[in-house]
């Protein structure tokens, strides 16, 4: 039994990592209705800033705050300087522009810090505590706690603030929003800035575990996309639940199904996601969209 709990807890702690990036993807999607492949690249760039600061002797918490501010500015600048150019054009072109940004940010991170992974100091003490016979690291608990706070904050932002309502309106229909007097371009900048700031939090939280390198989040991005889409893409709660689900069933399948084992366990959540999407195309928590002619 304690082994089972251990497997589930490890799965949840992986899921927390996926959820952090998934929330950033949901945020950009809700603000701009665009899938942003550069999300991971922006998060890694901000995390590298925190890394450079901690190397210079700055406490981790201050470095995190600096990374969040830098992330916000980076996201806003990228939106203003690059993505603005592709608005209103073919969405495929805009998505490829985010791919270009991903490549550039990865290349720039490698330019300053190289490709090899570096150790990153943890925000939380490196201890484990025993819960029902399973060992849980304080780092996992801290990550999950921060994540839940962020999720609630996002839910509140979108549901009950004027800013959130305005951002949803812009994502839904930029032209009507502009006609109703919303500052569309500023809202888009804020959306990208918030998403990149969130990515910075995620990067600093997971860097101690994954070790920081330009490709640190490449794989996480794929899981995060799966979580965001499974969760319905416009629901922060859905993204977190889906990420936890993916983390847990991947670990359970790897631990209990012999023919799956460690190498094939990645296939399990993706096959599960496919089956769920085919049955429920709008995702677990998404609302059904009807398209009119």
């Amino acid at each position: 039994m304690s082994f089972f709990i251990q497997v589930v807890v490890d799965g949840l702690s992986n899921g927390a990592i996926y959820a952090a990036i998934a929330l950033a993807i949901v945020l950009v999607y809700r603000a701009t209705a665009l899938i942003n492949f550069a999300q991971g690249g922006m998060a890694v760039a901000a995390t590298f800033l925190a890394y450079a600061l901690t190397r210079a002797g700055v406490p981790v918490l201050l470095a995190l705050l600096a990374a969040v501010v830098f992330g916000f500015v980076l996201g806003a600048v990228v939106e203003r300087g690059v993505m603005r150019h592709f608005e209103g054009g073919d969405p495929d072109t805009a998505v490829v522009a985010t791919i270009a940004l991903l490549v550039i940010l990865g290349g720039a991170s490698a330019y300053f810090f190289g490709y090899e992974p570096h150790q990153f100091p943890s925000l939380f003490p490196n201890k484990t505590i025993e819960v029902f016979g399973a060992f849980v690291s304080l780092r996992s608990i801290g990550t999950i706690a921060v994540l839940l706070v962020v999720m609630v904050a996002l839910q509140v932002l979108f549901r009950s603030t004027k800013l959130g309502l305005a951002m949803r309106a812009v994502a839904d229909n930029p032209q009507s929003s502009a006609l109703s007097g919303l500052p569309v371009s500023r809202l888009l900048m804020i959306g990208w800035g918030l998403a990149a700031a969130l990515g910075a939090i995620a990067g600093v939280l997971v860097a101690p575990q994954l070790f920081i390198s330009p490709g640190m989040l490449d794989f996480v991005l794929v899981y995060a996309l799966a979580s965001a889409i499974l969760g319905g893409l416009d629901s922060p709660l859905g993204a977190v639940v889906a990420a936890a689900f993916i983390g847990v069933i991947e670990n359970l399948a790897g631990a209990y199904l012999d023919f799956i084992g460690d190498d094939l366990k990645i296939a399990v959540p993706f096959v599960a996601v496919i089956v769920i999407l085919v049955v429920r195309p709008q995702g677990l928590f998404g609302r059904k969209v009807t398209v009119r002619v």
């Binding site: 690059v82 150019h85 592709f86 054009g89 073919d90 072109t93 490829v96 522009a97 791919i99 270009a100 940004l101 991903l102 490549v103 550039i104 940010l105 990865g106 290349g107 720039a108 490698a110 330019y111």
Partner: peptide, 18 residues
């Protein structure tokens, strides 16, 4: 710097020829 250059070229072409 292969990645950096490729990325910049990609973005430049997208800007010039969407």
């Amino acid at each position: 710097r292969t990645a950096l250059i490729s990325g910049v070229v990609l973005l430049a072409v997208l800007f010039a020829l969407p």
